[in-house]
């Protein structure tokens, strides 16, 4: 049987099985929105998703930042010694630079706003970090570069900042007698904002460095002889 037919059959079967499971689904036994609503008073923020992310289930968020960090560490281990000059970064175009100079303050402002808005409406560290990372990617694409990231210890310190502050906050609550990452109620709001601020820096740096660490596109493979002469 041909590969295409087999793939179509398998994926159709999976789709049908999932559809049946969707129709014949068990009803939820627990009313999670109501429980979140009850606990909102003690969370320190007004937006339920932020409350779940950084208070009720902050353990998940801590591990998620860990996953990001591991991805960057693996990418750092895989990088090759390569000159990182402006000619390797992409388009060095004066018009692009002029537009970037206009856009950059706006993007930084949006990033700060998203971080601040996270406590009352959709937003937060990840969205703000993503916008900040977009700033970095844009700067790199127009050849401006991020020279202060060339110093390895600066990059590493920035990457470690968020998880370290998060861990420190979690451990501090343990020292105060509560369980890990159980913030005291009066301090919860400002503590969450402080953690999010540091997380934003680390997330943005992680995304930027993942972008930087991909080998440049312009050059051919090292081992030309291994290349197949026949291209399908």
């Amino acid at each position: 049987m041909s590969r295409k037919l087999l793939a179509a059959l398998l994926s159709l079967t999976v789709t049908l099985a999932l559809s049946l499971a969707l129709i014949d689904r068990p009803l939820p036994t627990e009313d999670l929105p109501a429980r979140v609503g009850q606990a909102m008073q003690s969370s320190g923020v007004a937006h339920p998703v932020t409350a779940v992310l950084l208070n009720f289930r902050s353990y998940d968020t801590l591990l998620e930042v860990g996953v990001l960090l591991i991805a960057v560490v693996v990418a750092l281990a895989l990088r090759e010694a390569q000159p990182d000059g402006p000619d390797r970064m992409g388009l060095d175009n004066p018009l692009l630079r002029a537009i970037t100079a206009w856009l950059m303050p706006l993007m930084l402002m949006v990033s700060g706003y998203l971080l601040w808005a996270g406590s009352t409406r959709p937003g937060g560290a990840f969205q703000a970090g993503a916008v900040l990372a977009a700033c970095g990617v844009l700067l790199r694409l127009c050849g401006t570069g991020l020279s202060w990231l060339e110093q390895p210890w600066r990059l590493r310190a920035g990457l470690a900042l968020g998880p370290l502050v998060f861990l420190a906050a979690g451990t501090a609550t343990m020292l105060a007698g509560a369980s890990f990452l159980a913030y005291p109620e009066p301090l919860a709001g400002s503590l969450i904002l402080f953690i999010e601020l540091n997380l934003m820096v680390s997330i943005a740096l992680a995304l930027i460095s993942l972008f930087r660490l991909a080998p440049p596109q312009s050059d051919s493979p090292h081992f030309a002889d291994r290349r197949r002469s026949r291209r399908e």
């Binding site: 992310l53 996953v67 993942l210 991909a214 493979p221 090292h222 081992f223």
Partner: peptide, 30 residues
Amino acid sequence: ALVLTGIVVAVASTALALVILRRWYRVSGE
């Protein structure tokens, strides 16, 4: 919140996969 966490993990793994993919292309030409 779970999906938001999942999206970030998916972004990280996709970026890592791209880094590995391009490295693989540089080494093997495939």
